[in-house]
Each structure stands twice: as C-alpha cells, then as structure tokens.
Amino acid sequence: MSRTFNFSAGPAALPEPVLLQAQRELLEWSGERASVMEVSHRGAAFVAAAEEAERDLRDLLSVPSNYKVLFLQGGATQHFAQIPMNIAGVDRVADYIVTGAWGQKAVAEGKPYVRAQVAATSEAGNFTSIPARSEWQLSAEAAYVHYTPNETIHGVEFHQAPEVGDVPLVGDFSSTLLSRPIDVAHHGIIYAGAQKNIGPSGLVVLIVREDLIPTPPSNIAKVLSYAAQAKDGSMLNTPPTFSWYLAGLVFKWLKEQGGLGAMAERNRAKAELLYSTIDGSGGFYRNPVEVSSRSWMNVPFTLVDEALDKPFLKESEAAGLLALKGHRAVGGMRASIYNAMPIEGVRALTDFMADFAKRHG
C-alpha cells in the first residue's frame, strides 16, 4: 500500500484507525449481515448508532441540554442560505464579519433571504488578518452575527470567539470544529461541513439553541426547516447514513485520543513546528497572515520565486507529501493539518522544506 501524508484541505485525511475499522465492517456491520450503507436508517441498529454518535459529540463539545444537535445534508454552503431562512427573513438585518473567501460566500448566499450587512471585513488587506473589534459596525437589531472561525483558503483564524452582546452568534466551523475545546453556549448556531475534522463529505453537523427554532417556518419547505429536522431526529428524510456512521467512528477515536484538550495540544504543536520552519527560512518561505491571526488548521505559504512552485510540488509528491498546492485565490502552497494529520507528517513536510530550500536557495 502506498498510502502517505495527505495535506488536502478537504475532503481531507481521516484517521487511519477509523478507515481500518470501516474497512473491516464494510460488508457486514453490527451483526446486521449487511453493510451500514444497506440497512434502514429507521431500523433499530442504525438509530442506536446515530444516537450514540450524538451522545459522543455532545460529550466532546460539552453541548448544553438546551441545544439541538442535527446531522444534515447539503454542505455548509447550503446552510449559508438555510440559516437565514430559519432564524431571520428578508425583513431582518444580519451582520457578517468577513475574513476570507468563505465569509464572502456566506454573505452572497444569504442575501436573498436576509438583509446581509458586512459589519467588518479584512478584504482591503487581502484577508491576512481579523478586523479590529473596535472597527465592527454591528446592528443592535440584527437577527444574528455570522463569522467564520477559520478561513480554509486564506489561513486566518479567530483564536477566541467574538463578543457580540445579546445577538445570536453564528459560526461556520467547517474547518476547525473538534480541533480544540470551544464554548458552545457562547453561540446561537455552530455548523460545520464534515469533510475536514468530522468525517467524509455529504454531512453537516449543526448545533442550534432551541429558542432560535421554536417552530418550523411556514414559508420554506419542511425538509429545510431545522425545527422539523430536530423533531424527527435529523431523519425527516433519508440522511447520509455512511457519513453519519463514519463521523461516529471519528468521535470515538477523538475520545480515545484524550478528547479535545489533547487534540488542541497536538494541533498547536503541529502549527508551531510548521510556522517556525517558514519563519526561520530566511525568506525562502513566507506566510502572509498576521501572526496573531494564523490558522492552526490551514497554513498557506509562498516560495521566494514562483518558478520554484512546480519543482516543489513535483518533489514533495515524490517524497510522499500530497495535496500541497495552494488555492488559486492565494497561490503558492497550502498545508492543511487537521486532526488526522500526525506530527510525523508535519515533521516530514518541514524536513522536506528545509532540504528543498538548501538545494534551491
């Protein structure tokens, strides 16, 4: 087997023990004499597994009892629109803090369903920092304040949740959820596409305070209603069962690793190692993000000469370091070092980077 270190931004690497367990159970799962992909989502076996996955996630995140945990479909992008459909409406204002491409997309997709107002943005600085809190122009009447705790493309991260008063705080945690402990109760809604730290694509985890979804909105389809989905245990229609099952295995794996406190220490160490290599390269490598806003999960970097990009990618792939090409909006390279990336993978990358700089500098 030629499996190696995968730095893809998403769909991203999954923990190898999880993949091996899924492999063992692929043809026959939980005594059902069938694959988990082949059994009814309303059958006792799958319902039990789904409920256990929710309990484990609640335990990992210390989710308060007055929050619903939903396992939904559509990717986070669909929920850019679905959130205002459920908790706002075209007659309400919603504030958006924009620190990168995904924040921009959240505004664009929300505009048909809410009066989306950009209350702060770091676009003028090419999304290399978080706007100073004193510059935010928040509305006291806003239905919610939306932010992106970690920007996958630009590598900018909030290391503390912002204070927004009594207005519900909504966070797109797609690329950072489960990488460290967070204060769920500080938020009205937390949502995340699964394909970074949770599981395979096709699943969205959404955690919502109950008072924000008291009844299904009358002007949207029932399948888009968080209240309706909560009432039916996220099984209003057939859910993405295989993704849900795999997410449950990931939650178990995280608990076996020591929980989110332990993952935070690992992720901090991985990020520090990579950034120290970049900063200590004498200018051969460069990360454009303000130091206080640097992401633990997604590390973009450029080389001193763009002509070296192709050799870097060719040689790194040959060395077993995959998917390091940067997003087209930023260029250069990007190393995504989510939970499933071991410190050994980051060491292999930084050793390669040092050798490459020595040979081409």
Rank of each mutant, 00 (worst) to 15 (best):
R133I: 13
T277N: 07
P181F: 05
V36Y: 13
S234W: 04
G31Q: 08
A132R: 15
P288I: 05
D211W: 01
G259I: 06
D166F: 12
D59Q: 13
F158S: 04
P17I: 12
D232T: 15
V145H: 02
E315G: 06
S295F: 02
R33F: 07
E25V: 07
H360D: 10
V330Y: 02
L206S: 06
Q73G: 07
I189A: 01
V47Q: 13
I278L: 05
D232F: 07
K310A: 14
A335G: 05
Y338L: 10
D232C: 12
N219G: 11
V304F: 04
P240C: 00
R286G: 09
R133W: 06
G103F: 00
G110I: 02
D172G: 04
A140G: 14
A45K: 10
A335F: 05
D279T: 04
A143L: 07
P112R: 05
Q117R: 14
A45T: 15
V107R: 00
N197E: 09
E123R: 13
A132C: 04
V223D: 11
E315Q: 15
I83T: 13
I130N: 01
G165F: 07
A132M: 07
V114H: 02
A119P: 07
W136Q: 09
G43V: 05
K111H: 09
I97N: 14
V304P: 00
R180N: 09
Q23N: 09
A44Q: 08
S40N: 10
A329R: 15
Y147W: 10
A49C: 07
P15F: 02
D56C: 11
T241P: 00
N287Y: 06
V289S: 04
R133H: 09
I190L: 15
A50V: 08
L321T: 00
A247H: 06
I87D: 10
Q160P: 02
D172I: 08
N150Q: 05
L26C: 11
K111W: 08
A264K: 14
A247W: 03
S174A: 15
E306Y: 12
A262D: 08
V167P: 08
I97M: 13
F242L: 14
L273P: 13
N197S: 12
T302A: 06
P162G: 13
R92G: 03
A143N: 11
Q195D: 14
A50P: 03
N339Y: 01
S276Y: 05
L274V: 14
M297W: 01
S179K: 08
R42Q: 12
K325L: 03
A142Y: 08
Y67L: 03
Q23D: 07
Y285P: 01
A348Q: 14
K111I: 12
M1R: 15
A264R: 13
L14E: 09
V250F: 08
K270Y: 05
Q23H: 12
R359A: 13
P214E: 11
P200Y: 04
G248N: 00
R268C: 03
K222C: 05
E52F: 00
G100E: 06
H187K: 08
F242A: 14
E151K: 03
T148F: 05
L303P: 00
Q229M: 13
T215A: 14
I220E: 00
Q23A: 11
G89S: 11
G75W: 02
E51V: 03
S139Y: 12
R266T: 14
A22T: 08
V107E: 03
W296G: 01
L19A: 02
R328L: 13
L349T: 15
